[in-house]
């Protein structure tokens, strides 16, 4: 990949988050949690009941992803992003838990965009539909909780130079909106 791609590591620091602008490209190395619809539903219901959470999301990044089963000899199967808007209803709850970044694909709702600015968190997209390509940038995957949900369980992933594009920064920037403004 080209030089415009900045190499960063987890956790995302305040200093880094403040510099990120919609359209920036990053190669992320470190750990992220993978969680999608049902894991969000369950985690947020537990938080609403003030129960102790099975993971500590404070300072972490959530990747909206449910992998295909790991073929023999691999840590994970195909591992591309799912549509983020389905997780919009849970944005406030996870941001309150201290989540600093979300990875998925597609637009977020108005409330989520405002919450991202308020909680100083960033929404990233990665390459939708590039399941095999992205699997090659995941070096470890451990199911950490909600194992009964199968592909919808929460996994802790170790990612290596995992490509991210900033969609929503903390100053209200939105790459998807910019793309439509630049129509030919």
């Amino acid at each position: 990949m080209m030089s415009e791609w900045r190499t960063v590591t987890t956790p995302l620091t305040d200093g880094l988050i403040e510099t990120l602008k919609a359209g920036d490209r990053l190669l992320l190395t470190g750990t992220v949690f993978a969680a999608r619809d049902r894991a969000h539903e369950r985690l947020c219901a537990m938080a609403a009941r003030d129960e102790t959470l099975p993971i500590d999301p404070a300072g972490q990044i959530i990747y909206y992803m449910g992998p295909s089963p790991a073929p023999p000899g691999r840590v994970i199967g195909a591992a591309g992003p799912t549509t983020s808007s389905r997780m919009d209803p849970f944005s406030e709850a996870v941001l309150k838990m201290g989540v600093r970044g979300m990875i998925g694909k597609g637009k977020r709702d108005h409330a989520t965009r405002e919450l991202l600015a308020w909680y100083r968190a960033v929404y990233f997209a990665t390459f939708g539909g590039a399941g095999a390509y992205l699997a090659k940038r995941i070096s470890d995957a451990t199911c950490v909780t909600f194992e009964d949900l199968g592909a919808e369980a929460i996994y802790l992933l170790r990612v290596e130079r995992f490509p991210l594009v900033v969609i929503n920064d903390i100053n209200g920037g939105d790459l998807y909106e910019d793309a439509l403004q630049n129509r030919r």
């Binding site: 449910g66 691999r74 195909a78 591309g80 539909g129 590039a130 399941g131 390509y133 699997a135 490509p163």
Partner: peptide, 20 residues
């Protein structure tokens, strides 16, 4: 990346997309 994804899927035996 999508072009590479297509060749990787075939070579490495990983599905094109996690949504099969």
């Amino acid at each position: 990346v999508l072009v590479e994804n297509n060749s990787l899927a075939a070579e490495e035996g990983i599905p094109l997309c996690q949504d099969c």
